[in-house]
Design a protein around this nucleic acid. Structure first.
Length: 307
DNA sequence: CACCATGTTCCTTG
DNA sequence: CCAAGGAACATGGT
């Protein structure tokens, strides 16, 4: 049993380490993480930072990160798209300091008792005294950096009030690219990923191959609502099934270890089309299809999504 | 060994 | 200049 995943240590965040079929963080997973991790970090002071893989610091030099964070205190954790935005207060002058975190495909962040063995792919270890704040990332596609460029390129958050029909119409209107591919553009829908792009189009009843600029006002409205509902629903599932401390330690495949029998059913049925090629559509029974767009898998129901 | 993977960025091609 | 597609990044499961 890996201590990193042991709920007895106060907190655990998990998604399946296998590459296939297990959730990689998109907006909902990052939101759930931020809500749980934020309160645990608030007020905690950093004594030092160990960087075991400089790659995840991006453009930030190792020494600069270490110098900047030493002595600082975590104040706030927010989400922007798929990024985590850590606000810290420096020790000397009490100035605000921002660190951008991104989980890439396989990243995890959690607290670990100081005496616990670090995981093989611990990329950054922030020493908080009694505990370490660990950024683990098997593939090292994630980031923990002072470089905020990625965040500045993001479009409006789909759960915020700037994400309107008018914005979506303008963002999609100029492109003949397939609507599913455009949805993955972080400047269009910050936080959208491959799973929820398929799920949102299914919910809106829109074919994924439709050119973005050809959507009618009615389709744009349905798509915007579908995106909000799909993401909000996934967050709700993550929050409500999250910390089941009576767990046996078995993986739940969504966000956390351990699950109640009721949660198991919701988790099993959480996707309507994603990764369901060849299976019956849960709404109409037609076989769900898979197709590759821009080198990514898209799943859809040819009957429910006829436009 | 070959192929696949839920993210992002860069490069080439048209 | 832009759109579109593909490769690269690094690792591991099947």
């Amino acid at each position: 049993m890996n201590h990193a995943h042991d709920p007895a240590h106060g907190w655990a965040f998990h998604f399946r380490p296998t590459s296939y079929g297990g959730p990689v963080p998109e907006l909902p997973e990052v939101e759930v993480l931020a809500r749980h991790l934020g309160p645990l970090l608030r007020g905690r002071a950093i004594t030092r930072v160990k960087v075991r893989r400089a790659l995840v610091l991006g453009a930030t030099p190792v020494r600069r990160l270490q110098r900047t964070l030493a002595g600082a205190t975590f104040q706030k954790l927010a989400r922007r798209g798929k990024y985590l935005l850590f606000t810290l207060i420096t020790a000397k002058r009490g100035e605000e300091l921002l660190v951008a975190g991104h989980l890439g495909m396989t990243g995890r962040m959690y607290l670990l008792p100081a005496e616990a063995k670090l995981p093989k792919h611990a990329a950054v270890v922030v020493d908080l005294g009694e505990e370490n704040f660990v950024f683990e990332d098997t593939r090292y596609f994630g980031r923990f950096t002072l470089d905020l460029d990625g965040i500045e390129r993001l479009g409006p958050d789909p759960l915020g009030d700037r994400f309107t029909n008018q914005f979506l119409a303008e963002a999609l209107g100029g492109s003949r690219q397939a609507v599913k591919v455009k949805l993955l553009d972080q400047s269009v829908v910050a936080g959208m990923g491959n799973i929820y792009a398929s799920e949102s189009l299914f919910r809106a009843g829109i074919p994924p191959t439709l050119p973005a600029s050809s959507l009618t006002p009615g389709q744009l409205d349905r798509l915007r609502s579908a995106i909000c509902e799909v993401l909000a629903g996934a967050i709700e599932l993550g929050i409500s099934t999250a910390l089941h401390y009576a767990a046996t330690g078995q993986r739940d495949g969504v966000f956390y270890f351990g699950r109640s029998p009721e949660a198991a059913q919701a988790i099993e049925e959480r996707f309507k089309v994603y990764d369901r090629a060849g299976l019956s559509c849960r709404v109409c029974g037609t076989l769900v299809e898979r197709r590759v767009q821009a080198a990514r898998s898209t799943y859809f129901c040819p009957t429910c999504q006829r436009g």
